[in-house]
Design a protein around this nucleic acid. Structure first.
Lengths: 342, 342
DNA sequence: ATTAACTATGTAATCGATTACACGAAAGTA
DNA sequence: TACTTTCGTGTAATCGATTACATAGTTAAT
């Protein structure tokens, strides 16, 4: 077991005080060049490593940032995290991961735990939007810890966010379905208390209206993001008097479920029925019948969130900066909605 | 900005000393019940939160553990991380994420950075196996910080690991190909300086030998884990005098690339050619032509690694525990290797 | 020659919590 | 009554690094 070397050990060896050692290591201009050399050599030969905890306690900055996501094992969130880590790495920040599992209680715990751990900032995607965690958010703001929402945001004064234009995403994907000749377009939505799902829905609705297609409430189904949920949802729709001829699903997984079910019923995609998803999960382009989907550029979103954090950190006590970055969604048109070419 | 409340603030308010407050908060038996009550009430009314940094500095334990992976945006690693986080959450540990991007230099930096940050343990999947990072690993061990390898391991005394039986994985998947009647079975391998790829290859070889099929060196190609690499690799194989009639790929992505290329050439899968992958990526079961693959139970692997860490933490200075957990691989037989049923 | 200014370093407080040791008061024992 | 425990708190050191302030020694300026 190697002893922990501190600046006191170096000081003792050189017959000087720890203060001088500290200053020398920090390259203070008040220290004689020769002393600096001595200290640096001793530090290196004794294999000295600065204790970041002591530094953190003294300075009040831990050089850790917290990232809160519903789950880490989703392609989208994992990519965002990758972006965050890559952008922050050169600046010496470490990334602490927390998962909420869509549970507001966990979100609350995570917020308090991160603050207790003295993180220098929190980047997160909110979970369901209840008001029960308002105190926790307020607590973060009072502590003057930069808080940045990515993807799933929430209206709070003084909080920056990095999102994509979900309205536009819903709009362009619906337009594409309309362009393919679909007129009875259904929508699988997520929990509309979350802005992202609300906005995709509104984009969908607007696209219909702009094209003179009446909006049909029965065509909107709230479903979870899973293959199974997609199957259930399409089965309900196919029972309708006038079944739809297309689906825009807010989840690629639900879109896949719908496709599987349609295929089981020998309904031809895209000729008889078009299906589009959202998120651009890797599998959507791998399928033989590749699936049209809206890309959210998660890597870029992560990097951008990190950059917004870097802008805000340190600028405490000044005017609250509230930056809203909105990235453009990108439609990837694939076979599942390409009647023209098929 | 809310003031930071410390035990000294509480002490002042109650006209006692910080020591008493600390003891009361820690429920020390030496403190009068009535005093405890007073302290607890004051703490709660003043909204006191313990400063974890101070605690960490004093105790030498940060309650953070570091996780080092090549990338976080891979289904496998993300799932492992999920498992680790879930298992450690109830124990109050936070998870710090580092990515190596398969770069030994980054691995080295990450190891030192985590030690500098005083993490209580490091769970990692090693990157390429050179010896250049031996000092970094030794440094971790000297600091008596539990080090646990998962999936990609390395032989170091005193280090525990949680892996799957890759040899068996390679063996059973190859056997499945043989059972389907394939006799010229090729193998896409990864970097064989990594034990996992070496062992899968050895399992493949052994399965051939056990079935009396001669091993053909030309059938083994080292390829990256990507669709493109899979396409390139199969193109080389198809140029051979006796092209193979099956592939066991150490990567699902490369397997997919092979399948796409075979389809372009109108080679029928699985009738004329069988393809199996490794990792059980989500898309393998989503494809219309679902792909046979070997599951590595990443979630379980993560949880198990965390449990091994929990066993070791705290037991410093005692006998080095070197635990080697080997999980069983699970073959998921799908359409890409199912001649009998198709 | 005397004062001012600067240089390099030491002293000691600080960040916030824990804890070994000390001590006065109360209770128990002989 | 006198002596020993026990109880509840206070005192002060500690974890390791930083830094405002103090100070001794030099050099520059008047």
């Amino acid at each position: 077991m190697s002893e922990k070397i501190t600046i006191y050990d170096i000081a003792k060896k050189l017959n000087i005080t720890a203060a001088t050692v500290s200053r020398a290591l920090n390259n203070s201009p008040k220290i004689k060049e020769s002393t600096k050399q001595l200290v640096l050599e001793a530090a290196s030969s004794m294999n000295y490593k600065q204790n970041k905890l002591a530094l953190a306690l003294k300075s009040g900055r831990s050089n850790n940032i917290g990232v809160i996501v519903p789950r880490v094992d989703s392609n989208f969130f994992a990519s965002v995290i990758r972006g965050i880590e890559e952008e922050l790495y050169p600046h010496g920040y470490q990334v602490i991961i927390c998962q909420t599992h869509e549970n507001p209680k966990r979100e609350n715990e995570n917020l308090y735990t991160l603050i207790d751990a003295q993180v220098d900032g929190i980047l997160m995607s909110v979970t369901a939007v209840t008001n029960e965690n308002d105190d926790a958010f307020q607590n973060v703001l009072e502590k003057n810890v930069p808080l940045i929402f990515f993807d799933r945001s929430k209206q709070i004064n003084g909080v920056s966010s990095v999102t994509i234009n979900d309205f536009k995403g819903g709009y362009i994907v619906t337009k594409q379905l309309i362009n393919q000749g679909c007129r009875n377009i259904a929508h699988f939505s997520g929990d509309q208390s979350l802005e992202i799902f609300k906005n995709r829905f509104l984009g969908y609705k607007q696209a219909l209206l702009d094209s003179g297609i009446p909006f049909n409430e029965k065509y909107v189904i709230q479903s979870k993001s899973s293959v199974e949920a997609g199957k259930n949802a399409i089965n309900i729709l196919l029972e309708l008097e006038t079944p739809p001829d297309a689906i825009f699903s807010s989840s690629d997984f639900a879109a896949l479920g719908a496709i599987q079910e349609l295929r089981d019923r020998n309904i031809n995609i895209p000729q008889e029925f078009c299906v589009a998803g959202f998120s651009n999960e890797p599998f959507t382009k791998f399928m033989e019948l590749s699936i049209t989907s809206v890309d959210q550029s998660p890597l870029e979103m992560g990097k951008m969130s990190a950059r917004v954090f870097l802008e805000q950190v340190g600028k405490t006590d000044t005017i609250k900066i509230e930056k809203k970055v909105v990235l453009a969604p990108e439609l990837h048109i694939r076979k599942s909605t390409s009647r023209i070419n098929s």
